[in-house]
């Protein structure tokens, strides 16, 4: 669809068994394809972070995020446009060794991870277009293996939305407790 755009969804959750499948099910139900998915611990202890890249319509992405937030063990989910985040992907290439390959990779700002008499393994970090372009350039020399990670992203905003949310939550809890004790 023409209105489809790329979105980066970050989900913060409790670190709980089975949560990944709970989250991906929401996309399955709405027939939204996940372009990439990365999970790791967040900066806050005990809170897990999922970074999910999708292409869909603005309405659908909003609805998907609300369905994800509905999961009991999910703290919060945010949606960002690509320009709102700093994002990177990492790609590894195992290429047949030759002098021309070595010259090529030196020109493309890559790290050489391993050199064997038959092959070299190189790493490139960047946007998908960059890692894809290198893949195309290396192909004529014989790429034996190629793998690319999902997107990892941090938010450009000066405000830390998750921290703000957690503080707000704490305030709400306190208010609620006061109301309970008054009643």
């Amino acid at each position: 669809m023409e209105t489809d755009k790329e979105y980066i969804i970050t989900v913060f959750s409790e670190n709980k068994v089975g949560l990944l499948s709970q989250i991906t099910t929401v996309f399955t139900c709405r027939n939204v394809n996940i372009e990439s998915l990365t999970t790791s611990e967040s900066a806050l202890q005990g809170i897990h972070k999922f970074t999910i890249v999708v292409r869909t319509s603005p309405e659908t992405v909003e609805k998907v995020v609300r369905q994800i937030e509905k999961k009991i063990d999910v703290l919060k989910a945010f949606v960002y446009a690509p320009e709102e985040v700093v994002q990177q992907e990492i790609a590894l290439y195992k290429v047949t060794r030759s002098s021309s390959v070595e010259q090529l990779v030196r020109r493309h700002n890559v790290r050489i991870l391993e050199i064997d008499s038959d092959y070299i393994v190189v790493e490139k970090t960047g946007h998908k277009e960059e890692t894809q372009q290198l893949f195309r350039l290396l192909q004529p020399y014989g790429v034996q293996q190629f793998v690319r990670s999902g997107t990892v992203a941090v938010i450009k905003s000066r405000r830390e939305l998750l921290n703000e949310y957690l503080e707000e939550l704490e305030k709400m809890r306190k208010n609620q407790k006061n109301i309970d004790t008054e009643a």
Binding site: D73, L169, R173, Q176, D180
Partner: peptide
């Protein structure tokens, strides 16, 4: 239990 960190039963 009266609250769970990741769950807001009733929005404000």
């Amino acid at each position: 239990i009266a609250s769970i960190r990741s769950y807001v039963p009733v929005p404000e």
